[in-house]
Simulated scan of single mutants.
Amino acid sequence: MSTVDQRLLDAARAGAAAEVTAALAAGARVEARDAELRSPLLLAALGGHVEAAEVLVAAGADVNAQDHRADSPWLVTGVTGSVAMLHVLLPAGPDLKLRNRFGGISVIPASERGHVAYVREVLRVTDTDADHVNDLGWTALLEAVILGDGGRAHQEIVELLLAAGATPDLADRDGVTPLAHAEQRGFAEIAELLRDAS
């Protein structure tokens, strides 16, 4: 790898927007990759470095470029829950059907992790499929119930997904519905939301 490409990767990882600009001006490739095939934009997105990401998007960075783990800049916004990064990347045309290594789209890890603001915004400003099923056979709604803690954040996410048209009784591979999972876990508030939506 060229020294200038490494300079760009290091700057993106550190969130040093001015250094990103300088490295690009010195001839660094906007799609340079590190040993794990992470692009500068992916490194910026992982670190929540909004200004560095803005520079890279303006330079034409690929918002869908995936690394060896199938992460892309857009997909990792669902992991980090960064609404600011979502808005930086959205104009770059993310592929909303691009899948992560679990076969999921960004709203699924966001729902699992309780990123309420992100789930609200991605459902509001994109046509993300609220019923997307990942390789485990789980939707965002199922992940919010199965992997959530039943608390207020996950209750709000269930409300948001249902309001966005998520199918309340779309079961997992074993035929277990979100409601049945909620009841098994003693998540009374979520169970009530799901009953009301069915």
Rank of each mutant, 00 (worst) to 15 (best):
G78C: 10
D62G: 12
L123V: 14
G151K: 13
G186L: 11
G47Q: 06
R101A: 10
S106E: 03
T139M: 13
D129H: 06
H87L: 09
Q66A: 13
V119H: 06
H154E: 13
L170E: 09
S198R: 04
A11E: 13
Q184D: 12
A12D: 03
L142M: 11
A61Q: 11
E183Q: 12
S106L: 09
A188G: 01
N100I: 02
A32N: 12
A65L: 15
A182V: 00
V88M: 00
P73M: 08
E31N: 06
T77L: 01
L86A: 10
E156P: 04
V145T: 00
A52Y: 05
A171M: 00
T126I: 08
T3K: 11
A110N: 02
L56N: 02
L56G: 10
A16V: 11
L136H: 14
A191L: 10
D67S: 12
V133R: 04
A22W: 02
G78H: 06
L8E: 01
I146F: 14
A117F: 09
E51P: 02
V116H: 08
G150E: 03
I105L: 03
S111A: 14
F187A: 08
V116C: 05
V20R: 08
N100P: 00
D5C: 05
D5T: 13
R69H: 10
R152W: 11
A117K: 13
H49P: 07
V107D: 10
D71I: 09
T3Q: 15
G60D: 11
D172I: 03
L89W: 05
E51A: 14
R38K: 06
G27M: 01
D129P: 08
R152Q: 07
E159C: 06
R113V: 01
A180E: 12
R195Y: 04
D95C: 07
V4T: 15
H68A: 13
A65N: 06
L96W: 08
E189Y: 08
I146R: 06
A153S: 13
V55Q: 09
V57S: 05
W74R: 03
P91A: 03
P73F: 14
R185P: 04
G48W: 15
L42R: 08
M1A: 13
G60L: 04
G114C: 14
T167L: 15
S106W: 00
R173T: 04
L142Q: 02
L142S: 05
L96G: 04
P91Q: 01
E121C: 01
V158G: 03
D67Q: 14
E156R: 12
V30G: 07
A61D: 05
P40S: 04
G15I: 14
E19W: 07
P109E: 14
A28G: 15
L86P: 03
A59D: 07
W138G: 00
V158K: 11
S2H: 05
A25K: 11
T177H: 04
D5Q: 09
D174V: 02
M1L: 13
A70W: 09
L86N: 02
R13S: 14
P91C: 03
A84P: 02
A191N: 05
R69D: 03
E156F: 03
I157K: 04
G60R: 09
D34P: 09
R13L: 15
A17W: 05
E189Q: 12
V4R: 04
T177D: 00
V79A: 12
R33S: 08
E31F: 14
L141E: 06
A166T: 11
A163N: 06
E112H: 02
R69L: 08
L42K: 11
R29I: 01
V55T: 04
F102K: 01
T21R: 14
